[in-house]
Amino acid sequence: MTQSLHINKTYKLYIDGNFSRTESGRYIKWIDPKKKMIINFCRGSRKDFRNAVVSARSAFKAWSGRSAYNRGQIFYRIAEMLEGRKEQFISELILQGFTKKQSKKEVTLSIDRLVYYAGWADKYQQLFSRVNPVSSPYYNFSTPEPTGVVAAIAPDNSCLLGFLSVVVPAVVGGNTVVVLASESYPLCGITFAEVLHSSDVPGGVINIMSGRHDELIEQFSSHMDVNAIIYCGADSGHASMVEKNTALNVKRAVKYADQNWINPDAQGPYHIMKSQEIKTTWHPIGY
């Protein structure tokens, strides 16, 4: 029997629930450390980013309007789908040069992280909402609400767990996200779209791009229709550019310089709260 020729996968962007090539037609050639495989990733452009923000903005109202229970269910479903594709992600990590043990741990922790945040979907509000005992006849309460469209530069060092650790808390909290996958290890961030695509996540809620960080950080941080930016990275030049650009529309900035994504402090409801606003309502009491 002749050996069947391996079919290589085409890696694309994931924007508005569609797998699309970059509008720029550019690519980044990536060769795995063992020099076995060559992959051409999309070198996403600022226009891809613009389209992704348009899609995230239009998905925001419906997504933030879903019930917390439903968002929790969807994240649990994502975890189920990742569980089913465990082997794929482990082999992708190995392909990118990680050991088998490291890769297994990264994927297992990633699934755990998804389940963990699925559970928070309908609980963090109870933890951070309050009824305020004001000195006048009003029922006054404060609740967290998603800030809107979040742009995220995913960590470069942890291509799946780190990626999920910044994206998931934002989206569980009702935000929609445009995320730029790791540049050094783009594989799992990009292929995570395949998991999303089979997980009932509406198009536009999570948009995934690959591309050169140097080129895109400026656009990610200066877009006027982005409400918050999460920057993961230790490059102080990038960090300070991001912070300067937040002044344009008073964007919320979240920074992770050297977070170890395996540590317990890499997860928790306070990460959800980083992309939440507190809204206070004064409701009259009387007749």
């Binding site: 600022r46 923000v53 200066s222 877009h223 006027m224 229709d225």
Partner: peptide
């Protein structure tokens, strides 16, 4: 201005 805009403005 060089940066993408928002309909809020």
């Amino acid at each position: 201005q060089g940066n993408y805009q928002s309909s809020d403005y």
